[in-house]
Design a protein around this nucleic acid. Sequence first.
DNA 1: CTTGTGTCCTGTAGGC
DNA 2: TGCCTACAGGACACAA
Length: 276
Amino acid sequence: MPELPEVETMRRRLAPLLVGKTIIGASVKRADIIGHPSAAQFCRGVRGRRIGALSRRGKYLIIGLGDGRELVLHMRLSGHLEIVGRGEHPDYERLRLELDGGSALSFAEPRVLGRAYLVSAGRYPPALAGMLAMGPEPVGDGWSADYLARRLFGRKASVKSLLLDQRVCCGVGNIYSDEALFRARVRPLRPAGRLKRDEVRRLADGLRDVIAEGINWCGTTLVDRRYVQPDGAAGGFQEHLAVFGREGEACRRCGSRIRRARVGNRSTHYCPACQK
DNA sequence: CTTGTGTCCTGTAGGC
DNA sequence: TGCCTACAGGACACAA
């Protein structure tokens, strides 16, 4: 599940291979993968465009097309981007952009939940409204313990569910929210508004740190390998996970068995001894 | 406004 | 072996 560190790794890996390339053709293998506009308009719109800078906002990857338009991609749970040669088609390829020089950008997404959007910069369609409503990046200037305290104040929902709310802090998903809560020594199901001042501070710092470390380790590749870097290499942060995916295993800090619980309809992992 | 639940989608794991 | 069900989860629609 690509979260901020995984998408940032994709951006860094892809940029040198894409910037300056011209898109000479596009093929949509599954129309549902195009979030805006229609598949036909999408193909017509990207053809002939020259790729400018690659940027990122939360979990969205943004490919500038140099004509005031942007190609916005979201991987959701299992999306993957790869530069491939002519005639080389990865499994579950849903969208493919042929580039000058003979390479292609292939967007594979087994579950077809990911999306590609062709938009005018700054004039996003309703399908991308969530992108405009996103909160600050945990590794950016707008992130602080004071900010987080304001967003958690008075809220009865679990702190875990608010960390997953992109309006509160963007780019965070199930892995890094669990890891941040472990570092903060706070249980995921605690009502957000009940956190003490220093718990909020540890959480703000822990989230910032764990996201930064995730980026430095080029993301987290789990055993299912749903995320790998665009060249197929694994990330490295899975070696440093304290709780995520470690149900029943020993806490590295105190030795207790890591537990898994449900919050909403997703799972959350925590140490029952370290986290209060 | 807030909160919780259902839905999308498909491959995989587990049960029998 | 093979069928069937539950599960995985990011974002959003929707109900209360």
